[in-house]
């Protein structure tokens, strides 16, 4: 168990178990959904981080995956579609001592909420943004999402999609995120480590999780297929401090299933929340002045 303070928090001696982070709400996800693996990996990561649940705020948007905060014992906020990031930033600004996690689907983050992503990244608050990318709108029963491959036939594209999907990895790298990773629930241990590392990164951290939709997704995306398709970046010899190489590898989104850390800024800049603390300290009248 680690007691490092990389995340800006002061972890109490790690005495937590998965049970401390699991709520008594039963997930509504379909049996076989990738999101079960995500929440389990998250519990494990939080055990390792070692902060008490009440010091964690977990914010989500709308969609199947956005139900996730309710399955933890953290302070959860299941908000409106696409607005998890700005709400989370307000929380972190109002109380920088909290560990703030943000989660949602690919539609929440890259379609309806897409306009907030570059700004959250350029501000660089110490947040962890987890996207459960299933290439489909699951909650509304299978329509095109921003990451659905071209040509896909869905209830809103009976003749096949005629638009290019977005590449979330390349987007966030281009926007300047300091930590960018991709994981799969099929590799539970790897995913838990990635989430933990993302939380520990002092700044905006992005984890794209290829979390398959068992009901509307493609067979190639399912957990079983992930096991054979996944290629670990570490095993490929990728140096995560190399941003340009990370962007090159990210080009393969949609064809190759890379997992691991694409990019980690070796010299993390001062976070927005730290700037806020500094400014408040500088401008607030001292006790003597008051």
């Amino acid at each position: 168990m680690s007691t490092t303070t990389d995340c800006g928090c002061q972890p109490t001696p790690a005495t937590y178990t998965v049970k401390d982070f699991r709520s008594n709400l039963k997930p509504i996800w379909c049996p076989g959904c990738g999101d079960y693996g995500v929440v389990t990996a998250l519990y494990r990561a939080l055990v390792n981080i070692g902060r008490p649940p009440h010091e964690i705020a977990f914010i989500s948007g709308i969609g199947c995956s956005s139900r996730i905060p309710g399955y933890t014992t953290a302070y959860g906020f299941n908000t409106v579609h696409g607005r998890a990031l700005p709400i989370a930033q307000g929380i972190k600004m109002a109380n920088p001592d909290l560990t703030v996690l943000v989660a949602g689907g690919d539609g929440d983050g890259f379609s309806i909420g897409g306009g907030h992503v570059p700004h959250a990244i350029r501000r660089n608050l110490d947040l962890t943004y987890i996207v459960m990318d299933n290439h489909i709108y699951g909650l509304t029963k299978g329509q095109l999402s921003p990451t659905t491959p071209r040509g896909s036939k869905t209830p809103t594209s009976s003749y096949g999609s005629i638009e290019e999907p977005v590449n979330p990895l390349l987007y966030v790298l281009a926007y300047g995120a300091g930590f960018v990773a991709q994981g799969v629930p099929a590799d539970m241990e790897g995913l838990a480590n990635l989430i933990e590392e993302a939380i520990r990164y002092p700044g905006f951290a992005f984890v794209n999780i290829q979390s398959p939709c068992i009901t509307f997704g493609e067979p190639d995306d399912q957990l079983k297929a992930q096991k054979t398709r996944m290629r670990k970046l570490a095993a490929e010899g990728h140096d995560p401090s190399n941003r340009l190489r990370a962007m090159e590898l990210a080009q393969a989104y949609g064809t190759e299933l890379y997992t691991g850390v694409f990019y980690r800024n070796p010299n993390p800049p001062i976070t927005y929340d730290q700037h806020i603390r500094d400014r408040q300290a500088e401008l607030q009248p001292t006790a003597a002045e008051e």
Binding site: R83, P86, A88, G90, I91, M93, H116, P118
Partner: peptide, 17 residues
């Protein structure tokens, strides 16, 4: 904020906090 929605959303976040 980057837009009106993020403006009020961040304020709702701060209130929640």
């Amino acid at each position: 904020a980057e837009d009106e929605i993020a403006g009020i959303a961040s304020a709702v976040g701060a209130s929640y906090a």
